[in-house]
Amino acid sequence: MTDRPALTVTLDSDTFKAFYYLKEELTAFCRQEGLQATGSKAALTQRICVYLSAGKKESAKAEKRYAADIGELTAESIIEPNIVCSEKHRAFFKRELGRQFSFNVLFQNWLKENAGKTYGDALEAYRKILADKKANPTKIDKQFEYNTYIRDFFSDNQGKTLQDAIRCWNYKKALPGHHRYERTDLAALYEEVSL
């Protein structure tokens, strides 16, 4: 099994990208090197890649948004550009859709992409999003590689334990390349364990 290299300034960016590092490791490296240590795992990874390849210290730029004064919301109201999902919006959607309403990511994205349509259109879109979520399994974002791996492991290996899945995950993340489940990862379960 290949040992994963330590995350240091001597590591080249291609090698860094080939291995799996925990977000906590990325954050610690950023703090140690004076890089901005906030943001998603993907943002930290990108920041470290730039630093390892070019020595540049990039910082995340937050875009400040302001809520528009939208007045009373009705189904005929127009969705404003650069919408900020406020308590006024939440109250409208709860009134129209029920107390179980919550702003999920898909719906927030739909609102941002559909400025100029009506809130009646938004109500229909929310109902469709919920129906689609029930009909199709949720895609796990790239930054949640562990969750995706464990789900795929159990999909292919009914009867195996969580400890089996974790052992295979630990084997996989120590290898260079992608960190998606493959049936060959089961080799980790059959290796001799020396105590």
Rank of each mutant, 00 (worst) to 15 (best):
G98F: 05
E58W: 09
L44N: 06
G39H: 00
A54N: 10
L97D: 06
I70N: 03
V50K: 05
G71N: 01
E72V: 11
A43T: 05
F101E: 09
G39W: 01
S102M: 00
K57Q: 14
S102P: 00
K94H: 06
F103I: 04
T74P: 06
K56H: 14
E96V: 01
N82K: 11
S102C: 07
S86C: 12
G39Q: 01
S77F: 00
P81C: 07
Y51L: 00
S86R: 08
A43Y: 01
C85Q: 11
L97N: 04
R47H: 05
E80D: 07
S77C: 03
E72L: 09
T38F: 11
S102Q: 10
A42G: 14
V84I: 14
A67I: 01
I48C: 07
D69E: 11
Q46I: 00
C85P: 11
E96W: 06
E96S: 11
I79F: 09
K41D: 13
L44W: 02
A62I: 03
G71T: 03
G98N: 08
A91T: 14
H89D: 13
K88S: 15
S59V: 09
A91V: 08
E87L: 05
Q36S: 02
R65V: 12
S102D: 07
L97M: 15
V105L: 10
V105W: 07
G98E: 06
L97P: 03
R95Y: 11
S53M: 09
F103P: 01
C85N: 13
K88T: 15
N104R: 01
V105N: 10
I70C: 06
I70T: 10
G55W: 02
A68V: 00
G71K: 03
K64P: 01
S40W: 07
K64F: 14
E63A: 05
A54Y: 14
K94I: 06
A54P: 05
A37T: 00
V105M: 09
Q100M: 05
Q36R: 00
A75C: 06
F92T: 07
L52T: 07
F103T: 02
Q36C: 02
K57Y: 09
E96K: 12
T38I: 05
L97E: 15
A62D: 13
A91D: 15
Y51R: 01
S86P: 05
I70M: 12
C49L: 06
D69V: 04
G55K: 08
K61D: 07
I79Y: 02
S102W: 07
R47E: 04
F103C: 02
I79P: 03
G98M: 10
F101M: 09
R95Q: 15
A75M: 08
R99V: 07
Q36F: 00
C49D: 07
S77W: 07
A60F: 03
T38A: 10
E87Y: 06
H89W: 13
K57H: 12
F101S: 07
S59G: 12
G39L: 00
A62S: 13
V50F: 04
E96N: 10
K94S: 10
I83E: 05
S53W: 00
A43D: 08
A75N: 10
R65H: 14
L73S: 02
Q100C: 07
E63M: 05
Q36D: 11
F101A: 04
A43V: 00
Q46F: 11
V50L: 11
F92I: 03
A54F: 13
T45M: 02
